[in-house]
Amino acid sequence: MSVLASLKKPAVAVAAVALWVASVGFGMSVLWRYSNTPGHAATPLIDWPADAPVQLGKGRSTLVMFAHPNCPCSRASIGELAILMAQAPEKLDAHVFFYLPANESSAWARTDLWESARSIPGVQAIEDPGGAFALRFGAFTSGQTLLYNPRGRLVFHGGITAARGHSGDNNGRQAILALLQGGSPERNVTPVFGCSLRGE
């Protein structure tokens, strides 16, 4: 009752409302910043490595995505990959490497994200025990996408979502589509939004 009584004083009420507005504003800004803060950028291989676990596409571009099977933000990335594959299925081989800790069985990686990726036509889901392939390709963040042209040359790397967990138009998808259609995208590198693929 004393709190309620004190709230009847205008100054206290105004202060309380101001505090509330500030806390809401702060919360909103945290949310905003988190959504728009990308993960660690990749240091990708410029050329397709000879010891790559998958074959480079013959006459087709090869897309490699590294994902954490439990990353909620990567759900949007898989969704964007599905759009890509739908828009240019004949020009692209896609492989999604799912991180699997070294001491875990394959079941650990068999999440809904795995199933989503596996169900996309033309996409191959592959386990990445201990994150070795991600390390090999220089990927740090879940959702990291690399596009190699048929000659094995890296033409794009980055994320294919505009923000953390946000589906929809994004620079990454537009750039890949442009490249697949023989065009030149404005950007070849985009920020990646997702969980870290490596323990910190």
């Binding site: 945290v30 949310l31 988190y34 954490h68 439990n70 990353c71 909620p72 933000c73 991180y99 800790p101 875990e104 994150g131 879940s142 967990g165 969980c195 870290s196 693929l197 490596r198 323990g199 910190e200």
Partner: peptide, 14 residues
């Protein structure tokens, strides 16, 4: 988005 991950470790998602 229950948790955010870093490799094999995770914490409650923001």
């Amino acid at each position: 988005s229950p948790r955010t991950w870093a490799g094999s470790t995770s914490q409650i998602h923001l």
